[in-house]
Design a protein around this nucleic acid. Structure first.
Length: 423
RNA sequence: GGAGAGAUGGCAGAGCGGUCUAAUGCGGCGGUCUUGAAAACCGUUGACUCUAAAGGUCCAGGGGUUCGAAUCCCUUUCUCUCCGCCA
């Protein structure tokens, strides 16, 4: 969430930034500053009266110790009226605090200066394109047909066991998926990321900490019995490792990577968007997360983009990198690059990664801070990206690499997959 | 799941109704000494709010009793021990 002081000191600028992402309730910024003013005023009143009570209580203690019971009783008699005066102030203060908090979580992050204006995905800017689109033979098959032909994935079986959007990977399909996961993790750890296996369900504090709550409440599966959320991405448990932590400057940057299944309800999705592996309720993903010093976060973002780009190049997939426009960006992001691969048989670009800098939006909520060289505590910056989401990579790999007699496996996967081709 | 015991500063650990502004030890930081280091000795040591300062808040979370709560009561969560179940 945003810092009130930033909004207070740069009110007009903050509104301009929010307008870039087509945020409508700009008056919320003024309301927040007003609420904070109110809160401060009440806090001061509260503190003044509380100080008097504390002082009297100490005096009573001393008097009792000296056996001056009557003087102590006289002092005691003064306190009830102070407490009576305190009560409404306390309530008003707590109410103002809650209102402030409730308002703050409604504000999305401020887009960085690089974010292009725009409302829809059409307004995203292609910053780079790479790889070659293959020339497929006649009647290229979409991946769901290839999956059936080579017995790699059974979608109907998933429907039987759970429901739509929960595919069952079988044999070489499962093996290919595992090969990709292992390749991604090895590639990430070679680049200095530490591998984690985090919990796949999280509590409310964690879901709130990275901003999934209250924004994406309906997107997550919820275990009512224990009040746990199934993670929509391992970003949630990974970033929350640093909740309520004050780091040393030397600890930064923190580089983490994790494989996890991801669970998303995706309510309301339908049609060709959800066909095959295009959109699932459970999918696999390898994630990278970094926590950095504020002054380094944008060069870190560039490094993460280059890192993900390398992965796609190594897999030989045709890709493009988009800088998301204000209207298409995530709630908590300041700048996001999306990666799409071209799935040749479907003839569509599919999103396979999203790399974002959250600046201190997440860390402010998480209270993830570090002590700088001057001993001052300040908020760190957090970033994350998919490296990579598996289903669409798998789908496009099947489609782009299909031949007359099988599917060729990219060379980087040979040692994991144990073969150069699926026949 | 049942019974019992606990949760205190970076860590260990005292405090169980009133100078707690939380003892003590370890660790960290600074200094003295030293060619340098170690040892020894001396000093220092959290967060939030507010900030000119004072003040206020924080002893797992929430609520209560009291003039006054780390300390008493209720409640939630977590940890440990024993039993049960189990990969």
């Amino acid at each position: 969430m945003l810092q009130v002081n930033v909004l207070r000191q740069n009110t007009a600028w903050a509104k301009e930034r929010l307008a870039i992402r087509n945020f409508k309730q700009l008056e919320l910024v003024d309301e927040i500053v007003a609420l904070d003013d109110k809160r401060k005023k009440l806090q001061l009143e509260f503190d003044t009266i509380q100080a008097k009570i504390n002082c009297s209580s100490k005096d009573i203690g001393k008097l009792m110790g000296q056996g001056k019971k009557e003087e102590a009783d006289a002092l005691k008699a003064e306190i009830p009226q102070l407490k009576t005066a305190l009560e409404p102030i306390k309530e008003a203060m707590q109410f103002a605090e809650k209102q402030l908090q409730d308002a703050l979580v409604l504000l999305p992050n401020l887009p960085s200066g690089l974010v292009p204006p725009g409302k829809t995905p059409e307004d995203n800017v292609v910053v780079r394109q790479g790889g070659n689109t293959p020339t497929l033979g006649t009647n290229p098959l979409p991946h769901w047909d290839l999956a059936k032909k080579y017995n790699l994935i059974d979608f109907e079986l998933g429907v039987k066991i759970t429901g739509s959007g929960f595919p069952v990977y079988i044999g070489k399909g499962a093996r290919l998926q595992r090969s990709l996961i292992q390749y991604f993790l090895d590639f990430n750890t070679a680049a200095g990321y530490t591998e984690y296996i985090p919990p796949f369900v999280v509590n409310e504090d964690s879901a709130y900490g990275t901003g999934q709550l209250p924004d994406k409440e309906g997107q997550m599966y919820f275990v009512t019995e224990d009040k746990f959320y199934l993670i929509p991405t391992s970003e949630v448990p990974l970033t929350n490792i640093w909740r309520d932590v004050i780091l040393k400057e030397d600890d930064l940057p923190i580089k983490m990577t994790a494989y996890s299944p991801c669970f998303r309800r995706e309510a309301g999705s339908y049609g060709k968007d959800v066909r095959g592996l295009n959109r699932l309720h459970q999918f696999e993903k390898v994630e990278i997360v970094q926590v950095t010093k504020p002054e380094n976060s944008y060069e870190t973002l560039d490094a993460m983009v280059a890192h993900v780009e390398n992965l796609l190049q190594n897999l030989g997939l045709p890709y493009r990198i988009l800088r998301l426009c204000g209207g298409d960006m995530g709630f908590t992001s300041a700048l996001t690059y999306d990666f799409e691969v071209f799935s040749a048989a479907q003839g569509r670009w599919l999103e396979v990664s999203s790399v974002s800098n959250f600046e201190n939006y997440q860390t402010n909520r998480l209270k993830c801070r570090f002590k700088d060289a001057n001993g001052k505590t300040q908020l760190a910056h957090s970033l994350n990206g998919s490296s990579l989401a598996l289903p669409r990579i798998l789908g496009s790999l099947l489609e782009n690499n299909q031949t007359e007699h099988g599917i060729t496996i990219p060379e980087v996967l040979w040692k994991y997959f144990g073969a150069e081709e699926i026949r």
